[in-house]
Design a protein around this nucleic acid. Structure first.
Lengths: 156, 156
DNA sequence: GATTGACCTAAACTATTGTTGAGGTTGTAG
DNA sequence: CTACAACCTCAACAATAGTTTAGGTCAATC
């Protein structure tokens, strides 16, 4: 869990955001924002004093990153997906929509696998069916003797 | 993905299993079995030559470990759950059943969260609703001015 | 003009889940 | 008896996703 960041004292007319402000508003630690930037998931420009400044859009971008992570997508893939966004203009609703459709598919796939696993778990581990013949959790290798391919547990 | 282990040449009357045999039959790399043992998830005794020997039960134990991992349970928790199994007798179907019921609940919970996430994703990221008022993905902090709790993205 | 909070960089550290390699031993086959 | 596959230990390395620390700067306030 990211450390709870304190909101820095608000600047008078913050059209751009400091890293602390982004942290406070996005619920993501400053260190994580630095990290995302090193990894190329977000970008900033610098103030005269070499401090990071972000456009407000970064909030949505960070929100999207967090959401994608929840679906189980690794940062590297999120980066790739974000890279498909238009480079020199603010992403539109349609841009985000395309992203979300991709990710929804991945989510569905994960949900499907987990559901299948749950059903097998219910039917299998706990069923007491120690019989090799009936339990998909049992290693087929045991049945097949000493040849055949390596065992696969619940592979799909 | 674990390296595909070659099945060692089968020993004549293997009532116990060598580490290579367990690897071949469980589909788990020898190095992973060593690792599980270091972490206390499985146990072995040693032959005269200091080689690991496993009871056949270890196959089910390893299978269960792999299954639990798929549900997203970390090894440390799996270890705890397995520790609840009876120490000095072979686990019965009922023992496994209790385990599987616990894990099924966790799976259900994960499925529930992912499903909710998917629905919000569909309705939200891609919806174009950049209006603060209507989009749960938007940071409430933006609405509330400069006080109130830290932002929470899709917290539940 | 000193203090304080927010910020900077770079490197080291954390946790998880193993894999890889070096250097040495065991056990089975020919 | 020799070779070779499988085994042993211990240590280092890997990927992922950050956090922590040290040492220093910047900016606003008293």
């Amino acid at each position: 869990m990211p450390t709870e960041e304190k909101a820095p004292k608000p600047r008078p007319f913050p059209r751009d955001l400091s890293v602390g402000e982004v942290a406070a508003r996005s619920g993501v630690a400053v260190s994580a924002l630095h990290f995302y930037e090193r990894q190329g998931l977000i970008r900033s420009w610098r103030s005269q004093g070499n401090q990071r400044r972000y456009p407000r859009e970064v909030l949505r971008r960070v929100a999207v990153i967090k959401i994608a992570q929840r679906t189980g997508i690794p940062l590297a893939s999120i980066k790739q997906a974000l890279a498909a966004l238009p480079n020199e203009r603010t992403p539109t609703a349609d841009d985000w929509k395309r992203l979300s459709e991709e990710w929804r598919e991945e989510l569905n796939e994960r949900i499907r696998k987990l559901t299948q696993l749950r059903d097998r778990l219910t039917g299998c581990i706990g069923c007491g069916c120690l019989s090799v013949r009936e339990c998909p959790l049992r290693n087929p290798y045991d049945e097949l003797g000493h040849e055949g391919p390596g065992a696969r547990l619940l592979e799909d």
